[in-house]
Design a protein around this nucleic acid. Structure first.
Lengths: 354, 354
DNA sequence: TTGTAGGCGTTATCAA
DNA sequence: TTGATAACGCCTACAA
């Protein structure tokens, strides 16, 4: 038994060391119970093969009996990084980002990683702030959205030794992992599709999220495609309390113009849906009076009457691939691939509305 | 200058202690530079008023010069709690939870809290697992969904000394903070509304998420209301790849029954939307052939043709109120209220579909 | 394969 | 108000 040294010249017999702990079993507790040194348990936890069969059994028993769960905080402090994966999203109100996060969470959780969530509100400055804060958690990896960052962010990222993954966008010059697709190509592809279908006056309508650089990038792709075929681009901002309202309002505004478009490419399926429903209320026929196309491949698009033609990024896997990169970096999961740039691609879901 | 003690009787002159650190300035570095003890800097960081004016100035300078940023991991290990707030959600694929998280994040971020995100997939067992892991992070607060937990979860929660907030549901017996509304009442309210409108054969259709206890609770409310008025409840499960598909399929199935209902109450607006759109395809008139009501007050509901009657929980504030409780507990934010149970209530948005 | 010693960066406790 | 000391729970480096 452990006997605390007597305090100098006082007669106080035994002072129980007051513990600050949370009552959870620790590595030391397991070690004591199994009759081994703490470091052996530590090895067992990280890689059971490093421990002999006999000790392994004893430790396994002790772990089970004490319901021991490794303390990730302590691991993080002692090791070079924690088990936290930082994810910074521009918004969670958008279902696509929520979806990515959902999948990311699911995959990383089961391998013992935790998600530290940041919400940048489409602001690059906020992204940098969040990054500064999160780096103090010594994350095991970073998952960001897009490849546009402030200089400060770039500097911080450059010093990091853990994987950094940029999602949703692909850009040749980034030094980090990327999982996404080219929004420039996507915008051009939909514009080409509409032109090929015979529409000539094609407008592009996006939400007024100033900092959503990806929808702006699609707009650039759209513009280039139109100009290449001798048509004049028309980019309009939609405003409203909800994306549905915004889409409906934008449609009405465009239909009132003297030189009204014959097709509209919306920056996402929600505003496109708003437009389809507004057309229904107004009695405009889609696609005869006005063709409507969306972006995102949201589930609602397929159910609308008429069903919405949309550009569907194959983004379901973005979260999954991002998780895979992290797991593989740390030697977990199934080592499928490890390319620095994964283009998940997109396809045009050709339906009735355009 | 600091001189390391000579190792016992060896002639090795000076062994530079190898640092494993990441090169970041530590509390000790700041203390050395300011000529004070580390603990004094620690106090300064947590509450500058605890330090005399003179030392405060010196420490401030040192912090600035070294660009010192506290290590959250170490704080978490040594302190009674960290600056992380754990949020465990049943899913992020559902926009309502994503929304709550979105707001929670926004509010807590600006006060220096970080969100540790868990995804329980509607499983109480998983919730317990996540909780065990997350408790090692010594969170400053916990935000959970619902008041149903495993025994293990309950035991863990009972030991905690930080605020625990259950969201989305209200139940008188819980000892924790609660922010939400009564799903039992909500279900009954919509059933009563439909009965009051003259519908007699009212069915309830919910998604087949076995563990979504809240939609089941609304179903119970619906059943009670019907029985109280002498009608027979009919509860049906909707199945499909997407909620929209599921709603459409459920509608078709019900319309084919010999004793077909004259009104359907859907467990959420997405499946209700699927039903409205399916009715449109099938040529069934809503509400004349079949009345349709939803739950959730999703933005799409208002835009549909016909617009969807829905029960709208006033849930926008759930995340905000939860954040407020946490901030107030730690003496931050604006001290509005601090009731243990906040009923955000709901209202029936009466529209064309029922 | 197993163990010892010391450190990771901070805060709690107690004493001055 | 300030400081010395010992946690917090684990991991790295090195030795046996």
């Amino acid at each position: 038994m452990h006997m605390p040294k007597a305090s100098r010249s006082t007669s106080v017999p035994v002072v129980t060391p007051r513990r600050r702990s949370s009552g959870q079993a620790t590595l030391g507790d397991v070690a004591a119970r199994a009759g081994v040194a703490p470091i052996t348990v530590s090895r067992f936890i990280r890689d059971p093969r490093q421990v002999s069969d006999e000790l392994r059994t004893r430790i396994e028993t002790a772990v089970a009996e004490l319901e021991y769960v490794p303390n990730r905080i302590a691991q993080g402090l002692a090791g070079s990084h924690s088990s936290a994966v930082v994810a910074i999203m521009p918004s969670l109100a958008h279902s696509v980002f929520a979806q990515t996060l959902h999948v990311l969470t699911q995959h990383l959780q089961q391998y013992g990683y935790q998600i530290l969530l940041g919400n940048s509100g489409y602001s690059l400055a906020q992204e940098e702030d969040l990054l500064r804060t999160f780096l103090n958690w010594r994350p095991a990896a970073l998952v960001l959205t897009g490849h546009n960052h402030t200089q400060g962010t770039a500097k911080l990222l450059a010093q990091l030794k853990v994987p950094v993954i940029e999602t949703w966008d692909i850009n040749a010059r980034s030094p980090y992992f990327q999982v996404g697709f080219s929004h420039l190509h996507a915008g051009a592809a939909m514009a080409d599709y509409l032109l090929d279908r015979g529409y000539r006056r094609v407008a592009y309508v996006h939400n007024c999220l100033v900092e959503d650089l990806r929808s702006a990038e699609r707009g650039r792709g759209y513009s280039r495609a139109l100009e290449k075929r001798g048509e004049r681009p028309l980019i309009v901002e939609a405003r409203g309390n909800t994306p549905f309202e915004a889409g409906g309002a934008a449609l009405c505004a465009l239909m009132r113009q003297k030189r009204r478009p014959d097709a509209i490419f919306f920056a996402n399926d929600n505003i496109a849906t708003g437009a389809v429903l507004e057309a229904q209320r107004q009695g405009w026929r889609v696609p005869d009076d006005i063709a409507i196309a969306g972006f995102g491949g949201f589930p609602i698009a397929e159910q609308l009457v008429p069903a919405l033609t949309t550009l569907q990024p194959l983004h379901q896997q973005i979260g999954e691939i991002a998780a895979g990169i992290i797991l593989q970096h740390y030697g977990q999961g199934h080592g499928d691939q490890m390319e620095r740039r994964v283009d998940v691609g997109f396809e045009i879901a050709r339906r009735e509305s355009a």
